[in-house]
Amino acid sequence: MIKKFFKFLGKVILYFFGLSIGLVVLFKFVPVPFTPLMFIRTAEQIIEGKELVWKHDWISIDQMGMPIQKAVIASEDGKFTNHNGFDMQAIEKAYKNNQRGKKIKGGSTISQQTAKNVFLWPGRSYIRKGLEAYFTVLIEVVWGKERIMEVYLNSIEMGKGIYGIEAAAQHWYGKSAKNLTKAQAASIAAILPNPRVYKAKNGSRYIERRKSAIVKQMRQYSNPNY
């Protein structure tokens, strides 16, 4: 009985590694059609009887323009081009803040957020965080920084039912992503902590302050060298 159990467990682990590596390799070349969060949000709209909103237009990184790339680096992960997927200083700072009882912050990098958005579900369990670390290592090795940024900016939530920078640029400013100004890109980056509540256009004072800070930080960065 024990032998059968371990044999079964071994097969499950083997299948998991095979499937996960296969998906990572596939999405290095193929656009990500949808994410678990997109599915969850759509199911919530249906269950709550709300109007179904789902906008997601995949574009290549060359079609995004540089402002939005610099804006999310300034806003979400200033060391994106230099780290190996994990910002240890940010993780240590987040841990200390959490220990002091301050607002919970994860210190997640763009790579970690991409791994979570594409392959996993929302939440803070140790199992999910462990899987997030595993997928982060995989995409850093297999995809590289440019592909991670491309998938990130095509997959993250940027408004109610709005996913990816092209859909967000059209929704908030009625233009394509490549034509966003620095200020507009910073506005979209500013709402990422809670895109279903905050507004990129005609936003609150808090968002305007975040936008101004992001624009200032963007000036410190040259174009990302992936």
Rank of each mutant, 00 (worst) to 15 (best):
H171N: 11
M66I: 15
K145W: 04
Q99F: 01
Q63Y: 11
A185H: 04
F34Q: 01
S75T: 10
T136L: 07
Q112S: 02
G144I: 02
L26T: 13
T81P: 00
F16K: 01
K50H: 08
P31L: 12
K145H: 06
H83Y: 07
F27Y: 15
K55H: 14
K182W: 04
I165T: 04
M66P: 00
I68A: 15
I47C: 03
E208V: 05
E140V: 01
V137W: 08
V215M: 15
G130K: 11
F135L: 03
Y134V: 06
A168W: 13
A183N: 11
G65L: 12
A177R: 11
A183E: 15
E140Y: 02
G78D: 05
F6P: 02
S176V: 12
K175I: 15
I165N: 03
V30L: 14
K93R: 14
E150H: 04
K216F: 00
I73S: 07
D57C: 03
S60F: 11
A183I: 04
V197M: 07
P36R: 08
L138F: 06
V151P: 01
L9H: 02
K178M: 03
G85S: 06
Q89V: 08
W121M: 07
G164W: 09
M149W: 04
N98K: 03
S187N: 13
V137L: 10
F17M: 12
K211Q: 15
A169R: 10
K4I: 10
I110D: 07
I156S: 05
G65E: 13
K201Q: 13
Y221D: 02
Q112H: 00
K160F: 04
G85E: 04
E157I: 00
R41V: 06
F27S: 01
G203E: 09
L120F: 05
M218R: 08
K4H: 13
I188K: 09
I61T: 08
G174P: 09
P195A: 08
I165C: 00
A200C: 10
G164T: 05
Q112N: 04
W121N: 04
I139N: 02
